[in-house]
Amino acid sequence: MTDATLTIRFFARLREELGTESLQLPATPDQTVGGLLAELASRGGSWAQLQGDQPVMVAVNQAMARPSTPVNAGDEVAFFPPVTGG
């Protein structure tokens, strides 16, 4: 049986500006990445930037995802700025 929650993770600038490295949210039916972003952005303050001008990348279970990607109980969803390694 899978856990009925989602693990949300933030990296780099987003982690610092949101003051949050990870959080648990209850999983709900028919959830998508886009819906999750809107829900988090509606917290206001620095969270609004999740739907702001700067691009936000998202991975579901460590694979790159898009707004329409479904999100299910037990998933790990990560939000982060465009990558800058190398």
């Binding site: 990296f11 780099a12 600038r13 610092e16 991975a59 790159m64 982060f80 700025p81 465009p82 990558v83 800058t84 390694g85 190398g86």
Partner: peptide, 25 residues
Amino acid sequence: MDALKTTAPFWKKEISGDDEHWVEQ
């Protein structure tokens, strides 16, 4: 190397004295 720079999840923060700045892609 080229693909790593744009797809591997690494993030660089530059430090210049007391200044810190997350590098933009």
